[in-house]
Design a protein around this nucleic acid. Structure first.
Lengths: 195, 195
DNA sequence: CCTACCGATCGGTAGG
DNA sequence: CCTACCGATCGGTAGG
């Protein structure tokens, strides 16, 4: 008959604050004492909610991976559409995840290398699988004559590159909405800059 | 009449090894003891050649900044050329610096935030000035009708983004030469993927 | 969830 | 360039 402990939200709060700190200072430069202070606890108390510093990183990295996959699958589910249209939607979906939580995305993109084995290898495999999804789309589009590019592997890499720099400059209160950004990125990547 | 001490090359060796470690593990996660071992010294001996850990980071970051500026200026010196051509050369120059030393470039792109003030602010100002060079080129090209883009600021950001992801996947022994990569990147960015 | 603490490791220095 | 060492801080644990 005891009340349910609020550990669920505490854990979520710790994860969220940790994500912000990992984003701002990097995983290695963030101490558990800083994190404890930021959530209003003593250092030792963190370990009632969390097994280790790396466990938090693990959850953030793999959680984001799942979000990216879910968004991509939804964006490309309508396989009867033209591939170029699917690609456009996949770009917008990717940007949607990136802008929904810039800090988490940034940790996903840059801090995963502080995972120890075997998590690190698993993570890289996931990321490669995600990139392969874009690659396949570009290959299909090229085969169907909707896209033109000499090297789909290279094109996929470059495409994701342009998108993944976004967390380093995107501000939620900026003049462009996530939808604007996604649309312009898709437009620029598909049509190019040359006139 | 004493022989010149080899501190010059020792210092360069320390900088180079530190750059590789900062690239592989990140600045915060690299210890001076690791660095000492990697160059074959005891930890304390590093400080005969180097004032501090951050001093190394400072040198790498600002050294690369200078290289980027030099390369950009050389690529855009022929102002009588069409702007689109200048932009293409600036892209190739940027890729040239990136591929010449992937580790240093990666430190320049990601580890500068571990600089303390006022160096950090100075660095950001330099980087902004560099981006402004690309922005100006794109603006001129748009004004001259050589390029088309709804938002030159946005276009410049995206362009550099695609280039700056390169150190995360480029391998000197890969199938594409730096020149190939630079050429394809310029092509893809200027012409787009759509057919 | 706190207090008190562990062993390890950190960047850096003194003295030679 | 090494030996020996400094104070500070790290991630994490025991016991309550």
């Amino acid at each position: 008959m005891t009340a349910l402990p609020p550990t669920r939200s505490r854990k979520a709060q710790i994860d969220g604050t940790a994500t912000a700190l990992f984003h701002a200072r990097g995983f290695a430069a963030t101490s558990m004492r800083e994190l404890a202070t930021a959530v209003g606890l003593e250092a030792g108390s963190l370990y009632s909610h969390v097994r280790s510093k790396e466990e938090i990183l693990h959850r953030v990295c793999f959680g984001l991976a799942e979000e990216f996959f879910t968004a991509f699958d939804a964006a490309t589910a309508a396989t009867q559409q033209p591939v170029a249209q699917q690609l456009r939607q996949a770009i917008e979906a990717h940007v949607g995840v990136l802008t929904r939580d810039v800090a988490a995305s940034s940790v996903f993109l840059h801090e995963w290398r502080h995972l120890s084995e075997p998590a690190r290898t698993e993570f890289v495999a996931l990321r490669d699988r995600y990139e392969a999804g874009f690659r396949a789309l570009i290959q299909q589009g090229t085969a169907a004559g909707e896209l033109r590019c000499p090297d789909p592997v290279f094109a996929a890499l470059t495409l994701l590159a342009s998108l993944n720099w976004l967390p380093t400059w995107y501000r939620p209160d900026g003049r462009l909405s996530p939808e604007d950004i996604a649309h312009r990125l898709a437009e620029q990547l598909l049509s190019g800059l040359a006139n």
